[in-house]
Design a protein around this nucleic acid. Structure first.
Length: 503
RNA sequence: GCCCUCAUCGUCUAGAGGCCUAGGACGCCAGCCUUUCAAGCUGGAGAUCAGGGGUUCGAAUCCCCUUGGGGGCACCA
């Protein structure tokens, strides 16, 4: 069977025996990758895997000031956690400095770039002037046509300088975006961008173009915040005499306030999602649906289905708001789909981490497994598993005693229920849900109470909660002695309440 | 301010001229199930397809304008 037509790029590449698809994820190590970055990585990965291509990882560490310790590990951890494996790299741009310097020099030779000695102070001044005149804050081109003698004297005297691109003052630059179609910019609205900084490091623009060419990248898929610098990149390719890759600018991911997603929107990094108990498959699935869809109904995809279904022409143009509630739902779906061993495997670390300190460690795995069985369909995120189950692990349970008294009952009635249950359960051979139920349920009728009332009393007595897993299953897992003692305690508390009422 | 870009329920989206009195999902509401909570099932509210002009026998779908949102305008990426 033939693969589907794929993307314009894919069908183009199909005729190009020289190379298959090569895409890259190229983050800068300035912090933990957030979901927007990772979504970009995911789309690149899906595109590569769908087309049998290559997925590269490149670290754009050309900003020495913003570099953050541990960021690279954070990036690779995040990718690995989501199962986004890369075929080449990571390549570090900081290891390739000579490449960019040579490239910048070559551009100067060709008259496509020039050296600029303007100080940061002067640039600031220029910006202010432009702002005052309500003009775009662009470089004024003072060094654009410097006398060669001035340039060489500047260099020999060691004056700090940068290399700027000599952006044409006329004409326009157009590129074909795979997602948006043709995009055109007036060259006159563009800046003389810095290519090589005074510290010898390239800017993003230069390094990006040089590397994508050097690494034979066929498709650049990145967030659409990059659209405005694409004309420069196109001009760079052309100045170097290289064929540009294809461009596909992905819609952005927004916060609930519709602004570009950032830290102030709360949890945004992949690590945070892991720590809050989201399953990688769920986040993977959810992220894939932010800016891409298959049809009008399918939402649940596993990894392979996504790889098979993913194409660029199904990528949308509109920015998407990251909706946590829907992620929660989807995570619940994935949690419920786990078999109990898998669920226990995922949940154990959260119990170890989040259960009260008073609970002895390590947590008894066999017991926890039984507890978790009751919790699975009730959990949306793993981080709530401890909270949902503390009463299974702590010795005593606390609650306002009023909660024992169900609607239409009083303290003495509650006592009657507990007394009767205690008696009924006394000689029980097996402390199992089934036998518990068959001995307790008849008590409702016997005392003229509803199951809701009777079970309600027992639930609060035994779990300290008004909401918990099914009562008899809970009692079975909790065990005879805990149940009995908690029932007894509840009985005594009603005693106090009873005498308090009388007195 | 200038440039680019986007525009369907609160949110994610389907829709590539007649199948749309606009479909699905999350969330919300109600009912069922039921010992509570979940889960599940059923039903419901929710979008005059941003507004206005065209084109067409016919427009959410094509064109133009307006408005609104987003992004960019650094020796950051």
């Amino acid at each position: 069977m033939r693969q589907d037509q794929g993307t314009p790029g894919a069908s183009f590449m199909a005729n190009d025996t020289a190379g298959s698809i090569r895409v890259r994820f190229a983050p800068s190590p300035t912090g933990h990758p957030h979901v927007g970055n990772i979504r970009t990585a995911l789309f690149n990965w899906l595109f590569a895997r769908h087309g049998g291509g290559t997925f590269l990882l490149r670290i754009e560490d050309t900003d020495t000031a913003r570099r953050v310790e541990g960021a690279v590990e954070s990036i690779t951890d995040g990718l690995q956690w989501l199962g986004l494996d890369w075929d080449e790299g990571p390549v570090f741009q900081s290891d390739r400095l000579p490449l960019y310097r040579d490239a910048a020099d070559a551009l100067i030779q060709r008259g496509a770039a020039y050296r600029c000695f303007c100080t940061p102070e002067r640039l600031e001044q220029v910006r202010e002037d432009k702002a005052r005149q309500h003009l775009p804050p662009r470089y004024d081109g003072r060094c654009r046509d410097l006398d060669p003698a001035e340039v060489s004297s500047g260099i020999t005297s060691g004056t700090p300088s940068v290399i700027r691109f000599k952006t044409p003052r006329h004409g326009e630059t157009t590129f074909e975006d795979l997602i948006r179609g043709p995009v055109t910019f007036e060259n006159a609205t563009l800046n003389d961008y810095v290519l090589l900084k005074s510290d010898g490091y390239p800017t993003y623009h230069l390094a990006n173009v040089v590397d994508d060419h050097d690494m034979r990248v066929t498709h650049i898929m990145r967030a659409d915040e990059w659209i405005s610098s694409t004309p420069l990149h196109v001009m760079l390719y052309s100045s170097f005499g290289w064929n540009p890759p294809q461009f596909a600018h992905l819609p952005m991911i927004l916060g609930p306030d519709k602004a570009k997603l950032s830290k102030r929107h709360g949890a945004t990094t992949v690590i945070e999602y892991r720590e809050q108990g989201y399953l990688p498959e769920a986040l993977f699935n959810f992220l894939a649906l932010l800016g891409w869809s298959l049809d009008d109904k399918t939402e649940l995809f596993n990894r392979n289905e996504l790889v098979k279904a993913f194409t660029l022409e199904r990528v949308g143009k509109t920015a998407a708001v990251f909706d946590r509630t829907k992620l929660d739902w989807m995570n619940g779906v994935y949690i419920r789909a786990l078999d109990i061993e898998e669920f226990a495997h995922h949940a154990m670390p959260f119990l170890e981490r989040d259960l009260p300190e008073s609970v002895p460690r390590p947590i008894d795995r066999q017991y926890a497994r039984r507890v978790l069985t009751l919790l699975q369909e009730r959990t949306k995120v793993l981080s709530e598993v401890a909270e949902l189950s503390t009463f299974f692990f702590e010795d005593a349970v606390s609650y306002p005693e009023q909660q024992l008294i169900q609607k239409g009952m009083d303290a003495s009635k509650v006592q009657q229920v507990i007394r009767t249950v205690l008696a009924a359960v006394d000689g029980l051979e097996k402390w199992e849900a089934e036998t518990l139920e068959s001995s307790i349920r008849p008590i409702c009728e016997q005392l003229g109470l509803s199951p809701r009332q009777v079970f309600g009393v027992l639930r609060v007595a035994v779990t300290g909660r008004t909401a918990a897993p099914p009562l008899f299953d809970t009692m079975e897992v909790l065990g005879r002695s805990h149940c009995l003692s908690r029932l007894t305690i509840a009985y005594r508390r009603m005693e106090d309440s009873w005498s308090a009422e009388i007195g």
